[in-house]
């Protein structure tokens, strides 16, 4: 059986949908992290059958908006002094700034260098967001 050491200070992102872990790892910028990180894929799970897990040591800082977009049902354990001090399920963020690209060629964000995309959650069940500028809807 594969074993990864427990972390005493850091974050464990658990219950990531199997196969999604690598994308989460990349989009959270963990490839360039200067601290120890681990990605485990297809780990047996009593709840999900299998799951992906990311362990991040030595930091408690994570982009929950990005994580919420990619893995809204994951659980995030914050570990301090070897103890889980907080458990968070990120869920889909209400407002996403700069992370979703608006595909509408008529949208102002497509041409303005100074503009940053803003998407607002309009349908949680359908995972649908709407561009705050042009109203274009996207599913994540």
């Amino acid at each position: 059986m594969l074993r990864v050491d427990r972390i005493t200070e850091g974050i464990v992102i658990d219950h990531i949908q199997p196969g999604r872990g690598l994308e989460v790892f990349e989009r959270l910028g963990l490839r360039r992290a200067g601290y120890p990180v681990g990605l485990l894929m297809n780990v047996a799970s009593s709840k999900m059958g299998s799951k992906d897990i990311i362990k991040i040591s030595d930091t408690l800082d994570i982009d929950l908006t990005m994580l919420g977009l990619l893995a809204p049902d994951a659980t995030v354990d914050y570990i301090e002094n070897g103890v889980v001090t907080r458990k968070v399920t990120p869920g889909l963020p209400e407002r996403v700034v700069g992370l979703i690209e608006c595909k509408n060629p008529r949208c102002v964000i497509a041409i303005e260098r100074q503009g940053t995309s803003v998407f607002v959650l309009v349908d949680r069940e359908a995972k649908e967001y709407e561009c705050a500028y042009c109203g274009e809807r996207v599913r994540v």
Binding site: N104, R106, V108, I109, A110, E112, G115, A132, Y133, C134
Partner: peptide, 25 residues
């Protein structure tokens, strides 16, 4: 001509801004 241009402009405007039409929006 671009959709949402008025909202973007208003974010920078120090005075009241009226949308005189932004694309098809």
């Amino acid at each position: 001509p671009k959709e949402g241009a008025a909202l973007l402009a208003a974010e920078y405007s120090p005075v009241p801004l009226i949308n005189g039409g932004d694309g098809a929006r």
